[in-house]
């Protein structure tokens, strides 16, 4: 504390606060680079098998509740906004602001995970979980894989859903997003009826990717929610100041990274069988 650059927050092995902060940022970004490779392995596996079984992946994607997927995308991007505002409050030294935005971020994270519980339980209810009892609802022989030809002829999307035998929650979800179905066009690359023959085992593979990818993502969120609790405790104990809020800033990077993973997961899992 004799030095002008010295601060009670400065660890003894750093020259000054700036060096300490930059070392933390560099370490965090290298950790995130490693995380990108970790999720990248899952995305790579997804790409390989989707190239191999495109129709089955579309059929599996069509069975996911797009309404919940959209809802969760909004919730998670919203939580990134509140996290950015929490870091901003920390920069300005506003303790009440940090606590408010962290609590909202945690709440939105929990909403996301709650929706995931609803989605997962619908899949469990319909035996759409990889394993020996896996079922795709029309015996895996034929599926209307989201091709609008059929629904356009019927003029209503309900019967198509009944035929595909989708989870019940899909109806509600689709109702909220029923409008885009009108833009649906007849299947181009399949046969003219919008009916695609798929193999149940291939859909099972898609569902396996779905559970692994969203599961690893959800695990990151559970860890994130735990870390927010830790940050709230530190904030309440007045451990941060305008010159030192590195844990909040680094956690922000982690939370935004988890958001980015979802930005890619959402279209690749929910949106590939819609047209």
């Amino acid at each position: 504390m004799s030095d002008a650059h010295s601060s009670p927050y400065l660890a003894h092995h750093f020259d000054d606060m700036e060096q300490q902060s930059q070392a933390a940022s560099l370490g965090m970004w290298i950790f995130l680079a490693q995380e990108i490779m970790f999720f990248g392995g899952l995305f790579c596996g997804y790409a390989v098998y989707r190239l191999k079984f495109p129709e089955a992946f579309s059929a599996g994607s069509y069975s996911l509740a797009i309404g919940w997927g959209c809802f969760n995308t909004v919730v998670l991007i919203g939580s990134s906004l509140t996290m950015a505002l929490a870091v901003r409050s920390a920069q300005l030294g506003r303790k009440a602001g940090i606590i408010k935005w962290l609590v909202i971020t945690m709440f939105l994270g929990c909403v996301f995970l709650g929706v995931k519980v609803v989605e997962y339980s619908a899949k469990f209810e319909h035996n759409m979980i990889p394993g020996r009892h896996f079922e795709f609802h029309d015996d895996g022989k034929f599926v209307v894989a989201g091709h609008g030809d059929h629904s356009a002829a019927v003029g209503h999307d309900e019967p198509v859903h009944a035929e595909v035998g989708e989870p019940a929650d899909h109806h509600a979800a689709e109702a909220a997003h029923g409008e885009p179905t009108e833009h649906a066009e007849p299947a181009g690359e399949d046969n003219g009826h919008g009916i695609v023959e798929i193999n149940q085992g291939e859909v099972e593979l898609f569902v396996g990717f779905y559970f692994m990818m969203t599961g690893m993502h959800a695990l990151h969120m559970v860890i994130g929610v735990g870390l927010i609790i830790w940050l709230l405790v530190l904030t309440a104990k007045n451990r941060f100041a305008t010159e030192y809020y590195t844990p909040i800033e680094m956690f922000g990077l982690y939370w935004h990274f988890v958001d980015i993973v979802w930005i890619f997961l959402f279209p690749l899992l929910y949106l590939i069988g819609r047209h």
Binding site: I66, C70, G148, H177, P180, T181, H183, A184, E185, P186, A187, G188, P267, L271, I272, R274, H275
Partner: peptide, 9 residues
Amino acid sequence: TVGAAYLNM
């Protein structure tokens, strides 16, 4: 991106 997913391109 959701809108585009309903168009067959």
